[in-house]
Amino acid sequence: DPDTRIPVINLEDGTRLVGEDAPKNKDLVEWLKLHPTYTVDM
């Protein structure tokens, strides 16, 4: 689902973004380019 929010984690300080704070699936690739310290939180 393009509107599903994907949890991400900041590799530098461990900050996790989940729920309403997390980027949407459809925006994920662009969002990660803009926030290079974050990666998808598995």
Rank of each mutant, 00 (worst) to 15 (best):
D1F: 14
D1E: 00
D1L: 04
D1S: 08
D1T: 00
D1N: 14
D1Y: 07
D1I: 11
P2D: 07
P2I: 12
P2L: 09
P2T: 15
P2M: 10
P2Q: 15
P2K: 15
P2Y: 04
P2G: 12
P2C: 15
P2S: 13
D3V: 06
D3Q: 11
D3E: 14
D3C: 01
D3P: 02
D3S: 10
D3I: 03
T4P: 07
T4A: 08
T4I: 11
R5K: 15
R5N: 06
R5F: 04
R5V: 06
R5Q: 03
R5T: 08
R5G: 05
R5S: 07
I6E: 07
I6N: 05
I6F: 07
I6T: 03
I6S: 09
I6D: 09
P7G: 15
P7F: 00
P7C: 06
P7T: 12
P7V: 08
P7D: 15
V8K: 05
V8W: 01
V8S: 01
V8H: 02
V8C: 02
V8G: 01
V8E: 03
I9F: 12
I9C: 11
I9K: 12
I9Q: 13
N10A: 02
N10W: 03
N10T: 04
N10M: 02
N10V: 00
N10S: 13
N10Q: 01
L11N: 15
L11C: 09
L11V: 15
L11F: 13
L11K: 13
L11D: 14
L11P: 12
L11T: 15
D13G: 07
D13N: 14
D13A: 09
D13F: 14
D13S: 11
D13K: 08
D13H: 00
D13Y: 07
G14K: 11
G14N: 15
G14V: 15
G14C: 08
G14D: 10
G14T: 07
T15P: 08
T15C: 05
T15E: 01
T15F: 09
T15S: 14
R16D: 07
R16M: 15
R16F: 10
R16G: 05
R16Q: 08
R16H: 14
L17D: 05
L17P: 00
L17T: 07
L17A: 03
L17I: 13
L17H: 11
L17W: 03
L17V: 09
L17S: 04
L17E: 06
L17R: 12
L17M: 15
V18Y: 12
V18H: 12
V18I: 15
V18L: 10
V18T: 15
V18S: 14
V18R: 12
V18E: 14
G19A: 07
G19N: 08
G19Q: 04
G19W: 02
G19L: 03
G19Y: 04
G19K: 08
E20G: 09
E20W: 04
E20M: 08
E20C: 07
E20P: 07
E20D: 12
E20L: 06
E20V: 09
E20I: 09
E20H: 03
E20Y: 05
E20S: 10
D21T: 08
D21P: 05
D21C: 12
D21I: 03
D21A: 07
D21F: 09
D21S: 11
D21Q: 13
D21W: 04
D21L: 10
D21V: 03
D21H: 11
A22K: 02
A22S: 06
A22I: 03
A22M: 01
A22L: 03
A22F: 04
P23I: 03
P23G: 01
P23Q: 08
P23E: 01
P23A: 00
P23F: 01
P23H: 01
P23W: 00
P23D: 01
P23V: 01
P23Y: 00
P23S: 01
P23M: 01
P23C: 03
K24F: 04
K24V: 04
K24M: 15
K24W: 04
K24H: 11
K24A: 13
K24P: 04
K24Y: 08
K24N: 06
K24C: 11
K24D: 03
K24T: 12
K24S: 09
N25R: 11
N25S: 11
N25M: 11
N25T: 10
N25D: 11
N25V: 03
N25I: 06
N25A: 09
N25W: 05
N25P: 05
K26M: 07
K26V: 09
K26H: 15
K26R: 12
K26N: 07
K26E: 15
K26W: 02
K26P: 02
K26Q: 12
K26A: 12
D27R: 01
D27N: 13
D27H: 08
D27E: 08
D27V: 04
D27G: 05
D27L: 01
D27Q: 08
D27M: 01
D27A: 05
D27C: 09
D27S: 00
L28W: 00
L28F: 08
L28I: 10
L28A: 07
L28K: 04
L28P: 02
L28T: 06
L28Y: 03
L28R: 05
V29C: 11
V29R: 15
V29N: 15
V29D: 13
V29K: 15
V29F: 09
V29T: 15
V29M: 11
V29S: 14
V29W: 05
V29I: 10
V29A: 15
E30V: 05
E30I: 02
E30H: 08
E30L: 03
E30S: 13
E30N: 12
E30R: 07
E30M: 07
E30K: 06
W31V: 06
W31T: 05
W31I: 04
W31R: 06
W31A: 10
W31Y: 07
W31E: 11
W31M: 09
W31H: 02
W31C: 07
W31P: 10
W31L: 03
W31G: 10
L32D: 06
L32S: 08
L32I: 04
L32Q: 14
L32A: 03
L32H: 08
L32M: 10
L32N: 06
K33G: 09
K33A: 15
K33Y: 10
K33S: 13
K33F: 06
K33T: 04
K33V: 08
K33R: 14
L34V: 12
L34T: 14
L34D: 12
L34I: 05
L34C: 13
H35E: 02
H35P: 00
H35R: 04
H35A: 05
H35C: 00
H35Y: 02
H35W: 01
H35N: 12
H35T: 02
P36I: 01
P36K: 06
P36A: 02
P36R: 05
P36C: 01
P36S: 04
P36G: 03
T37E: 09
T37A: 10
T37M: 11
T37S: 12
T37Y: 06
T37N: 12
T37P: 07
T37I: 08
T37D: 11
T37W: 08
T37R: 12
T37F: 01
T37L: 10
Y38P: 00
Y38L: 02
Y38K: 06
Y38G: 06
Y38T: 06
Y38S: 07
T39L: 05
T39G: 07
T39N: 10
T39S: 12
T39H: 09
T39Y: 06
T39A: 07
T39F: 02
T39W: 00
T39P: 01
T39Q: 13
V40K: 11
V40N: 06
V40E: 08
V40L: 05
V40S: 10
V40Q: 11
V40W: 05
V40H: 06
V40Y: 05
V40M: 05
V40G: 06
V40I: 10
D41I: 00
D41W: 00
D41H: 06
M42F: 08
M42S: 15
M42V: 12
M42T: 15
M42Y: 13
M42D: 03
